[in-house]
Simulated scan of single mutants.
Amino acid sequence: MTDTAAPADGPTALLHGEYKVPGGKLVVVDLDVEDGHLAHVSVSGDFFLEPDEALLDINRSLTGLPDTTTAADLSAAVAAGLPEDAVLFGFSADAVAVTVRRALAKATTWADHHWNIIAPTVLPTHVNVALDEVLTEEVGAGRRNPTLRFWDWEEPSVVIGSFQSFRNELDPDGVARHGISVVRRVSGGGAMFMEAGNCITYSLYLPQTLVDGISFADSYAFLDAWVMAALEKIGVTAFYVPLNDIATDQGKIGGAAQKRLANGGMLHHVTMSYDIDADKMVEVLRIGKEKLSDKGTRSARKRVDPLRRQTGLARTEIIAAMMEVFTERYAATPSELTGAELGEAHQRVAAKFGTREWLHRIP
């Protein structure tokens, strides 16, 4: 992540950081550290800034700050040092802060990590949810490389968010009639209606250093930039609708959720609709009925506009395209779940994710 370069006026090595703003421009920072403080700070990039002199203000704002300054405080210093009439286009004070932290090796880039990919493996939904907690902990503890894992499952399921009310989200008659397995995950967000083959779900397990200085809201698009590229490759132009929805001009196709652990691990996972049975969905989810109100099933189909209709591709082909793009971008290598990881996941199903106490912790 941190490159060094020798400036023309002397042998001192400068620290170098780069950050490409999602949907924006490249920000570059070269700096030195003297007695624990930032020195010789030089911000550059292909962004736009008015007036020109504001660039010197940014450099002055950062010079002299302790090298332990947090991303939030770096951003605040930059913002405070800018003239009132300054206009930043394609970047922000936050982006400068991220770049400085990268130069100081306090934040990491995708290229700083050896990424693994775990291909779809059919597992019970309870185990898939438990694995999200287990693998996030493993990455945070440094026992597993940052990893992209694709889910697979057989039983019809609903996975509710950590903070959702069981009774408010689910119709018990629909759950019983359709044999739905209901599971609560560790991340927030909304309910996921999942039948075998009707969704594409993946989880990213990463160190929080990768999103150091990036706002909670911006981290969603940042972590899914590769997905947008993969969808573009198969003819789907997708974009984020804040905070956590993925959509195309034909409607919503998916949603994301996150969980950050105390040990530095982070979970980012996404479910995209491939071929949703909208009739069944609105019989199982109360939230589906409430959101759709009197618009009926026809509108439900529009709301969860599936990828099958937009691409004409098999689900396996879409997943293959995603894996290919991720591998090409981040030099990822194949990996498998270990016996220890699966064993720990099964134990957590018994102790937590498969218990009534966890499922109904918010009744």
Rank of each mutant, 00 (worst) to 15 (best):
D57V: 09
R286I: 03
S181M: 13
A345V: 07
T338I: 07
T297V: 15
L123N: 07
I246Y: 10
S165N: 13
V175L: 03
I180C: 06
S299R: 15
L15S: 00
A321K: 11
L131I: 13
R149P: 02
K259T: 03
L170I: 01
S75N: 11
D94G: 07
L170A: 00
F163N: 14
T99K: 00
R286L: 09
A111I: 13
C199S: 08
I287K: 04
R308T: 01
M281A: 09
P83F: 10
L38M: 14
L74Q: 09
I253Q: 08
P11F: 15
G288Y: 05
E357W: 03
R298W: 13
P334N: 09
A332Y: 04
K280R: 07
S187W: 03
V304S: 13
V96N: 05
L123R: 04
T297Y: 02
P7N: 14
D212E: 15
T355A: 04
T327G: 14
T109L: 15
L38T: 04
F48V: 12
S157L: 02
T136E: 08
G24T: 03
L170P: 06
E317M: 14
A225T: 15
W226L: 11
Q258P: 04
G140Q: 00
K259E: 02
T70R: 01
E290F: 12
P51G: 03
A103K: 01
Y205C: 00
F91C: 01
R149C: 03
F166P: 02
N263F: 11
S203N: 13
D218I: 04
D279A: 02
T68F: 00
R303S: 13
P172Q: 13
G288N: 05
L292E: 09
D245K: 11
R356D: 12
P124T: 12
R184W: 06
A256C: 05
G36W: 10
R260H: 09
P172K: 11
D294T: 12
P334D: 14
S157I: 02
E328M: 14
R301F: 05
F163T: 13
H37C: 00
A247R: 09
K302I: 04
H346D: 01
R144I: 14
R356W: 06
Y202E: 07
R149N: 12
D277W: 04
H269I: 06
S299H: 15
H37V: 01
A300M: 03
R184E: 00
E328Y: 14
V28R: 12
T327K: 10
R356G: 09
D9H: 11
K259P: 08
L74E: 08
V282F: 06
A321C: 04
R329H: 12
S215G: 14
R60W: 07
S44K: 13
L131W: 02
G235A: 07
R309Y: 03
N128M: 08
A107Y: 02
T2N: 00
T209Y: 04
I253C: 04
T63P: 00
I276A: 10
G90C: 04
A321I: 08
T355F: 04
L14T: 11
N198V: 11
R361P: 02
W358I: 05
E133D: 15
S42Q: 12
H37S: 08
